[in-house]
Design a protein around this nucleic acid. Structure first.
Length: 822
RNA sequence: GCGAGAGUGGCGGAAUUGGCAGACGCGCUGGAUUUAGGAUCCAGUGAGUAAACCUCGUGGGGGUUCGAGUCCCCCCUCUCGCACCA
């Protein structure tokens, strides 16, 4: 079959773009700046078409913005630290650095094959010491601001793989260890991280919701319960102090440190301990599945309800989490479904204290969690529960038995990893001075190359085996000291990389504040929804921290966020393990990168998941062939005619006029579809329509050199090539050149359209009787409402249907529709 | 369970503020050209009917309206996220 020579064309233009540095930005020039950022990828080495979607959308957008006359910053880099490199080292006996380097080279080649261009002069690689020097600098900054601290924390232990932390392979932990680990105090910013979500108008709603739920603020009270026959007190967090008179028991998390002291001398020790031990084991092996039944055990102790004075039993139960609030709760079975189930399972008192003001309470069949009127609550009876909340809170605070408190679900960010392939935590542990940061001028703390990566068997990082790394001097007292052997979570690397692109080679500071002030926030951030929570939250946190330090002047890093859907095949997410990946290499070989790009953009709305169909790819290839052939057929004429300027619309024949109109309409449509929400599919559809129209036009009209037909054809074809260029850059750049241009199509401002010219001279008027279509009439587009009414009523078929009766109503909608109501 | 999004031909998907449902592409059917076609071009393609200018038709049921894929209420299904957060 005759297909256009995609191989030669694509190779030719890749080279031209490389040599002309198409995407290299003049960073000093911030007039009409557009920072177009793709989430930098983990260099896994091999990208399938599912990954490609992300980069192709970004590339098409960057090229489009370039043609809009923007100064586009489109950089790319590598999230190059992380587990797979280390696993590769273990299994294939290759150094993580070499493995990563190879993969980066492979992926750069793939980007090039796809025609995806970046400003490679700004490439950043997170495993590069020149980069992680500043990740470490960030750590030290946080430490000095009191926002990095270390404490003993539990690490899941995977005996089968002999590692601590996270294990991708076996997935099951069967032990836990306590290690000193570093945390960032992200909770200090919980309020502002939550509140500022409101300012992110251009983020997808679902991402905002996910972040909101993740931070999850709740206002309530910490209430102190004295323990009977003891000096001890227990503190519970509740958002419903108004229900306290219905609090008929307390529950501690099984792992709560106070459990042991409580059970001493009760005779319940053995029973409680075995329950606690059993729960601990379950938690490590089964991944926190919610159990339907509410298991728990009585501790043998009672507490005193500070409002009712009642003695209430204290339990330990698995449905209470150690990690949230104070690790214990007051059980109010009538108004909390979980407490309700627990009380029923253990025969505990259930007392209703709130009744809804309207409707039926589900109580006593289920808990009633809403607001209402207080009952069985002594002096609070008859009060609205919202008011009782305040009264009871005031009362308990006055008696020092309670304190108003705001709790967040968000926890501090544990950044220590007992792994080799990451940025070393730049801290030194000195027996006399404690934890001391590595002085700034000694950064980076380089990752030693010659290390045995095999798990040590004690949960510590392989770096702990490297004596030359561990042994050092204390920067403060010069005594013998040891380096921290853990490395940082890779989310730390990626929490600030968007700043580094501005001055990637600056060895005096992490970023240039004056450039940051001008280029940030990022205008458009594009990436997978899988990073909707952590990466975006951490980046927002670090941005807020840097602002607090006075290093930047904006508080949100990403003004506009776009999360693309994934590509599925055979109904499942494309992945190597499922064996349903489409390899772009052979596809590009047979149909070319442009056809592949076109298809990926033609799949559907980019924010939604899409199904890959091999058959449909061919359709896009066919379209490009038709486009190319149309040019071939009229190459000489297309090249000779000058474009737009001299066309006088009013003098055109109806056929020419229609092509002229359609061209203007297409220009408007494509610009709008891409700019608004990246709806490339509908933009491409419009271009296909124009191409179909041009085929018909050039078929039916004699196109003579110098004729208005030739002029119109040239104008329409050139516009079409121009509009299509961001999607299929190689072929369009080629056709652009063949049209006689000497500059790159991407350096050429998009054609302007006139919305007046885009309007048709005639419109099809739909005439309905009682909302049923009964006729269609061609009318002049500028007919007045009265003219339209008359034309509709005068139509033969309408007249015969109306039969001389007077319509009750005649509704005229522009020049589109008339509805005659009988 | 809670939260978010979606449900339109054989398929992917279009459809401004409520105003011709099915753009564009795939697939399919017929024709042209061809030694041949898995190439190309032309025509057709939601369903019903011999056929139509007829009737029905956007997950189901109600409602508002001259008019509903679109707005309101109820229900069903699917996808995603969170999942004992006190």
């Amino acid at each position: 079959m005759q297909t256009y020579p995609h191989k030669e064309i694509e190779a030719k233009w890749k080279a031209v773009w490389r040599d002309s540095r198409l995407m290299e930005v003049d960073i000093r020039d911030t007039a009409r700046k557009y920072y177009c950022l793709m989430m930098y990828p983990y260099p896994s080495g091999d990208l399938h078409v599912g990954h490609g979607r992300n980069y192709i959308i970004g590339d098409a957008l960057a090229r489009f913005k370039l043609m809009e006359g923007c100064n586009v910053l489109a950089p790319m880099g590598w999230d190059a630290f992380g587990l797979p490199a280390e696993n590769a080292a273990l299994h294939h006996n290759i150094h993580p650095a070499a493995w990563t380097r190879n993969n980066i080279a492979k992926m750069k080649r793939q980007f090039d094959e796809w025609g995806v261009v970046y400003d490679w002069s700004r490439e950043v690689t997170s495993c590069d010491p020149e980069y992680y020097k500043w990740t470490q600098w960030l750590f030290v900054k946080l430490f000095k601001s009191g926002l990095a601290y270390h404490t003993a924390a539990s690490v899941n232990w995977f005996p089968s793989c002999k590692i601590g932390g996270m294990c991708e392979r076996c997935g099951k932990a069967v032990g836990e260890r306590f290690l000193e680990q570093w945390f960032f105090k992200i909770t200090e910013f919980a309020d502002v991280l939550l509140d500022d979500l409101e300012t992110l108008q251009e983020w997808p709603e679902r991402v905002l919701v996910m972040q909101k739920n993740w931070i999850d603020r709740s206002e309530g009270l910490e209430i102190v319960f004295p323990v009977k026959d003891s000096e001890r007190t227990l503190t519970c967090f509740t958002t419903r102090p108004d229900t306290i008179c219905g609090a008929t028991f307390l529950v501690l998390a099984p792992a709560h440190p106070q459990v042991e002291a409580l059970i001493a001398g009760t005779g319940r020790e053995a029973a409680v301990r075995s329950f606690v031990e059993e729960e601990r084991r379950l938690r490590l092996t089964t991944r926190e599945l919610v159990e339907p039944e509410k298991k728990g055990v009585f501790t043998g102790r009672y507490a005193v309800n500070p409002v009712t004075g009642e003695e209430i039993p204290i339990y330990a139960a698995s449905y209470v989490l150690m990690e949230y609030g104070t690790g214990m709760i007051m059980g109010v079975p009538a108004h909390d479904q979980r407490d309700f189930e627990f009380a029923n399972a253990h025969g505990l008192t259930i007392r209703e204290v709130i009744r809804p003001t309207t409707g039926q309470s589900p109580f006593p069949d289920a808990a009633y969690p809403g607001d209402g009127i207080m009952v069985n609550s002594g002096s609070f009876d008859g009060m609205r529960s919202e008011l009782a909340f305040e009264r009871i809170a005031d009362d308990l605070e006055r008696r020092s038995a309670g304190k108003r408190k705001i709790n967040f679900r968000l926890r501090d960010w544990l950044i220590s990893r007992q792994r080799y392939w990451g940025a070393p935590i730049p801290m030194i542990h000195c027996p006399t001075c404690g934890a001391v940061p590595v002085p700034e001028n000694e950064l980076p703390v380089k990752l030693p190359e010659d290390v045995d990566f095999h798990p040590r068997g004690d949960g510590k990082s392989p770096l702990a085996s490297c004596e030359s790394f561990c042994k050092t001097r204390c920067p403060s007292c010069s005594g013998a000291a040891e380096r921290d052997t853990d490395t940082m979570d890779t989310f730390v690397d990626s929490s600030w990389y968007f700043l580094r692109y501005l001055s990637p080679n600056d060895d005096t500071r992490p970023f240039d504040p004056s450039l940051a002030a001008r280029w940030l926030p990022v205008d458009q951030y594009i990436g997978g929804v899988e990073h909707a929570i952590l990466h975006l939250l951490y980046s927002r946190f670090i941005t807020k921290f840097l602002k607090k330090e006075g290093l930047i002047d904006f508080s949100e890093p990403f003004a506009r966020l776009f999360t693309q859907g994934m590509i599925c095949k055979d109904g499942a997410k494309m992945s190597k393990s499922k064996g349903n990946v489409v390899n772009p290499g052979p596809l590009i070989e047979t149909i070319g990168a442009d056809a592949m790009r076109l298809y990926i953009l033609f799949l559907g709305p980019p924010e939604k998941d899409a199904e890959w169909k091999d058959d449909s790819v061919e359709g896009c290839h066919r379209f490009l062939n038709r486009l190319y052939r149309l040019h071939e057929k009229h190459a000489a004429i297309l090249r000779m005619e000058s474009s737009a300027g001299s066309i006088i619309p009013d003098s055109l024949s109806p056929e020419c006029r229609e092509v002229f109109r359609k061209t203007h309409w297409t220009i408007l449509k494509v610009k709008e579809d891409i700019a608004d929400d990246f709806h490339f599919k509908t933009a491409i559809s419009a271009i296909m329509e124009l191409n179909n129209a041009l085929n018909a036009f050039s078929e039916h009209s004699a196109i003579k050199e110098g004729s208005p037909e030739a002029q119109i054809l040239r104008y329409a074809f050139e516009s079409m090539v121009h509009l299509l260029a961001p999607m299929t850059p190689h072929i369009c750049e080629e056709l652009w050149q063949q049209l006689g241009h000497t500059d790159s199509v991407f350096r050429h401002p998009l054609p302007e359209a006139n919305s007046e010219f885009a309007k048709a001279a005639f419109a099809t008027l739909v005439v309905q009787i009682d909302s049923k279509i009964r006729a269609k009439i061609e009318i002049p587009a500028d007919s007045t409402e009265e003219e339209i009414r008359q034309l509709a009523l005068a139509h033969d078929r309408i007249q015969s249907l109306v039969q001389g009766k007077t319509p009750r109503k005649v509704i005229v909608i522009g020049n589109k529709l008339v509805n005659i109501v009988m």
